[in-house]
Amino acid sequence: MTELLHFAGIGLMIAGTAFLAMAALGVWRLPDLLSRLHVLTKADTAGVALIALGAACLAQSFAATLSLLLCTLLVALSGATTGHLIARDHVESASSQEESP
């Protein structure tokens, strides 16, 4: 059982790292702000959640699992909110530039 959890944990963390690497690649390669935000917010949240899940498999303590859950929740919340704020600012400044060229 412990062995199984260990391998599951490692596997989940590798998957999470892959998501984060993908997010980094997206930010680097994608052409404009909105598509960068699109890849960043989703892949970032999924990556952190997977890594936290993997770490929870390895930690095997209830308190540590709870802290990891809290980390995931906060990263998901702040990621989504900052993504929204940046996109909003971008859209607003773009539309105000169109109005007064």
Partner: peptide, 16 residues
Amino acid sequence: PLGPLMLPFARVVLPL
């Protein structure tokens, strides 16, 4: 005001 998502965000984050 920073848009409609900021208040729900603060509602969760401030107690935390």
